[in-house]
Every structure is written in C-alpha cells, then in structure tokens.
C-alpha cells in the first residue's frame, strides 16, 4: 500500500507547500486538497497546515471549519483517519470541535517567531511514535494567537489522560495554559500543535530535522493500519 497524505489549502494558507514537502520527505505521497473540495481523493491522513485561513476574520480558524473540505475531514476523522493540525490548522481543529479548547491572542500581544524547544510528552499518538518518551525537539514557532486556553476540568482531563502531546520547554512563548504546545483527541489519531514541525525536516532549511519524526510516525501508523 502506498500511503497518501492530503494537505489542505484554504485561501490564506501559507505552509501547505512546506507541509507537502515534509510528507514527501517521509516517503509518503502528498495530495493537495482544495478548501472547496468535498472529496478527499482517497487520502489516508490529512494535514491541516498553517497560515491565515480566510484572513483569520472573526476568529482564527472560525470560517475555515465550515469549508466544504472540512466537513469531509471531520467525518473521516471521526471514523479514525489520522489528522494533524499545525498552527492555523490546530486552531481550525479546535474550532471544528475535533480537539478541545481554543487558541487566543498571545499574552504579550506580540507575534512570536523563533526556534522553540518542545518536550514530546506522549509517544503513543499516530503522529509521535518515532520519538523517545520525553525527547526534546527544536522546531520553529510563529504565531500571534497561539495561547492555548481551556477550562480547568478540560486541562485536568488532558493531563490525566496523557493527551498533552507537546509542552514548551525553556520558556513559554505565548502564555499557553500549562505550557501546552500540542494536544491529541482521546484516540491519539487527531493531533494539533502550534509550532511547525514541517519547517524542521532538514538542517539545510530549518533549525533541525526534529520535525520529520511526526511525518514518519504517520507513515508507520498508516502502514500498520489494516488496508
């Protein structure tokens, strides 16, 4: 089976090209998905990439969640298809209700753009099995509305169930509750994070190749999955 991973492009998406490149670096076929498509072209997983979908009008991700392609992604995700939301993609997955909580304006109002250390807190998800437990990875973070917010019972549940997948180390860039950089759904197949693993797949073009493990993990998950 040749795995195929779809990468969505909304109006205002910026990081679809890098996300598709990261998918190809993992020896997986990358399939472009347009926001107006209902059909997912037979892909086995989907990456919702970063950017400013629909100008981030109203709220980041609020309009993108109603795009035709997202209806199909939400249906497929609920049936178990792996989905990764990066940055604006994470915001879209939260707005869509596939992940709990919300991303709000950074605590100091600055757009933060820097290389950021993260600790991989859960290596059981479809997107993180290639990492050692507790591994620290260096990937870029770049956002203005990246502060993860949820009510205390939700935060307690995420912590208690091991659904905090990535946590900021060496300084919290945006005021995220409990230093949360990324979370998963209860199945571990849907993951969202604010930092950008797709920008860190080759030391030539990024601060490290630490992000590639996420795409290789997805390859493992898809190849291990029954056809």
């Amino acid at each position: 089976m040749t795995a195929k991973v779809g990468v969505i492009t909304f109006p205002g998406t910026l990081d679809d090209v890098d996300a598709a490149r990261a998918v190809r670096y993992a020896d997986v076929e990358a399939v472009s998905l347009w926001h107006g498509d209902h059909d997912l072209s037979g892909v086995d997983a989907v990456v919702v990439p970063g950017g400013f979908s629909y100008g981030d009008y109203l709220r980041a991700g609020a309009i993108a969640r109603f795009a035709p392609v997202m209806g199909s992604v939400i249906d497929a995700a609920r049936k178990g298809m792996p989905v990764l939301g990066i940055c604006n993609g994470f915001q879209v997955l939260c707005e869509a209700g596939l992940l709990p909580g919300a991303l709000v304006r950074n605590h100091k109002l600055h757009f933060v753009c820097r290389d950021q250390w993260l600790r991989v807190e859960n290596t059981q998800t479809a997107w993180t099995t290639r990492y050692e437990p507790g591994a620290e990875i260096l990937v870029p973070v770049k956002n203005g509305e990246g502060a993860y917010m949820a009510d205390e019972p939700t935060l307690d549940a995420l912590d208690g169930e091991g659904r905090v997948v990535f946590r900021y180390v060496g300084g919290n860039p945006n005021g995220s509750r409990r230093d949360i950089a990324g979370i998963s759904d209860p199945t571990g197949r849907i993951v969202g994070l604010m930092p950008h693993p797709e920008h860190a797949i080759d030391a030539l073009t990024g601060p490290s190749d630490d992000g590639l493990g996420m795409f290789l993990s997805a390859l493992d998950a898809l190849q291990g999955a029954p056809a």
Partner: peptide, 13 residues
C-alpha cells in the same frame, strides 16, 4: 465578549 476568566491582553493594552 471574552469570558471573565479568560485573559484579555488587548483590553489590558
């Protein structure tokens, strides 16, 4: 409006 318990950095600025 942002919920009372949610930090409102824009309002604070």
């Amino acid at each position: 409006m942002p919920k009372p318990e949610i930090l409102d950095p824009q309002g604070q600025a």
